[in-house]
Design a binder for these strands. Structure first.
Length: 463
RNA sequence: UCCUCGGUAGCUCAGUGGUAGAGCGGUCGGCUGUUAACCGAUUGGUCGUAGGUUCGAAUCCUACCCGGGGAGCCA
């Protein structure tokens, strides 16, 4: 008798077939002479309905052990369901409880729980409908990302998680040390003597693999990273994590135009893949989480993104009859409210804003011919704001050196990054995508802590 | 980090100075193929923590802790 996943049985199981299913009890509905179980094994949102007849040996005792959350193995025969909520169901013949689940103390009820409550039990919450759907969609997103790049001959490169560079230009870093915090060695002048630490110098968790990805792109032409990233910012919002996953493609012989084209094709591919692979989960999000996710996904796949320069965006915002809390003025960064106005009210779709003033962007972004702006691009989406940030990189050694110095940074810290411009430099471009923000955007989940299994945020590393 | 709202039963919440409540869940019983099952009964509390005011505090005051939403920073 073959063991089959629930999704397989729901899709292709036929009456009279023998089948064994293994999973966890979601609900039990008892009637006088028989009972229904719903078994879920994580393979799909819908569970398999199992019918237990009172003629089963030791029926009364059996039912007592079949509580919500218990793990079971059930052998039986598939039959056409008399109910209208499922095509097929399993008539149980033998049943084994692997692990009991005390219903007095098991925290997950059959009814809906708040996401705040579920966050206090990250080890159990994946057994709920919503988190189950989230993590299946998250998996499909991962797969779609690799597929997109691999089909285009991009090399997946593994950039370091521990970095010796404390100046990657993207926020506070978490220190990595092997020192005993009670006995940190000091130099004669009273400074911390990092020469005695594990790596012989200060080290940190990476905030971006971009600089290393650029090095790899200058050998392999097209590469991408997909890995964890860390930020020690004390950000307490529904869109920030201290540990998150980032996707960073980097392309040699590419300009800003090519960068934007790639970003748009990339998002379209992921949405298309999720719509095809996870229709049940997406329908669930549309019904229970956010009634616009399907419409939004269809728009992403079919519509061209709006493209607008920062200068035009500022001019548009200045003319808008919309009250803004923060000032709109050339040279100031766009605030959340401005970004939301552009993509939620004005264009009603994703917007790519390009060519920002050089003062508000990173040193490595390529200086435009006007000398005032850089070849940067941000992809803004409704509700979330910035989901992708990218740029054509500055490939000219002299200008890059000026930009590093102008931002108060030191050339020595970037010696190897500058070498890339000394030896065979080429125009190149890339972008970074916050993976959890992508999953948030696709699923409509309001809080980023609910789209990663074990979220890391300030004061939260329990699991 | 700032602003703001909140913390009362396992969960979601009501109670705003005078005996601690409801719905759901759990348990027990009933029931015609149920599917957020249904019907009946029942169980369940250091009111976030520590001080203070008061004859009396879940309720008023102070501090702290934790959570939600918004902002900044960003992805």
């Amino acid at each position: 008798m073959s063991v089959r996943r629930v999704i397989d049985l729901l899709r292709s199981g036929e009456p009279k077939q023998a089948a064994t299913v293994k999973g966890w009890v979601r609900t039990k509905r008892e009637l006088k002479d028989f009972a229904f179980l719903e078994i879920n094994d994580g393979s799909s949102l819908q569970g398999l309905q199992v019918v237990l007849d009172h003629s089963l040996p030791d029926y009364a005792n059996l039912l007592r052990g079949l509580t919500t959350g218990a793990s079971v193995s059930i052998e039986g025969v598939l039959v056409a369901s008399q109910g209208n909520k499922q095509r097929i169901e399993l008539q149980a013949q033998t049943l084994e409880v692997w692990g009991q689940c005390d219903s007095e103390t098991y925290p997950l009820q059959k009814k809906r729980h708040s996401f705040e409550f579920l966050r206090t039990m990250a080890h159990l919450r994946s057994r709920t409908n919503t988190l189950g759907s989230v993590f299946r969609v998250r998996n499909t997103c991962s797969q779609a990302i690799h597929q997109f790049f691999q089909e285009r001959d991009f090399l997946w490169v593994h950039t370091p998680i521990i970095t010796g560079s404390d100046c990657e230009g993207a926020g506070e870093q978490l220190a990595v040390t092997h020192f005993d915090p009670r006995k940190v060695p000091l130099t004669e002048t009273g400074e911390i003597d990092y020469g005695q630490d594990f790596f012989g110098k200060p080290t940190y968790l990476t905030v971006s693999g971009q600089l290393e990805a650029e090095a790899m792109a200058l050998a392999f032409s097209n590469v991408y990273t997909f890995g964890p990233t860390f930020r020690a910012e004390n950000s307490n919002t529904s869109r920030h994590l201290a540990e998150f996953w980032m996707v960073e493609p980097e392309m040699a012989f590419c300009n800003l135009q090519g960068d934007m084209d790639l970003a748009e094709a990339f998002l379209k591919h992921i949405f298309k893949t999720v719509l095809e692979a996870c229709p049940e989960d997406m329908a669930f999000f549309n019904l229970r989480i956010d009634k616009t996710v399907l419409e939004t996904a269809e728009q992403i796949v079919t519509q061209e993104f709006e493209r607008i320069t920062y200068g035009d965006a500022i001019a548009t915002l200045e003319k808008a009859k919309h009250p803004f809390e923060y000032p709109v003025e050339w040279g100031l960064d766009l605030q959340s409210e401005h970004e939301r106005y552009l993509c939620e009210e004005l264009f009603k779709k994703p917007v790519i804003v390009t060519d920002y003033p050089k003062e508000i962007k990173a040193f490595y972004m390529r200086l435009n011919d006007d000398g005032k702006t850089v070849a940067a691009m941000d992809v803004l989406v409704p509700k979330l704001g910035e989901i992708i940030g990218g740029a054509q990189r500055e490939e000219r050694l002299d200008i890059l050196e000026q930009r590093i110095l102008a931002q108060g940074l030191s050339l020595e810290d970037y010696w190897w990054y500058l070498d890339l411009r000394r030896y065979g430099t080429v125009p190149h471009a890339g972008f970074g995508l916050g993976f959890e923000r992508l999953v948030q955007f696709i699923t409509g989940m309001a809080n980023i802590r609910d789209v990663i299994p074990f979220p890391r945020t300030p004061l939260n590393a329990e699991f």
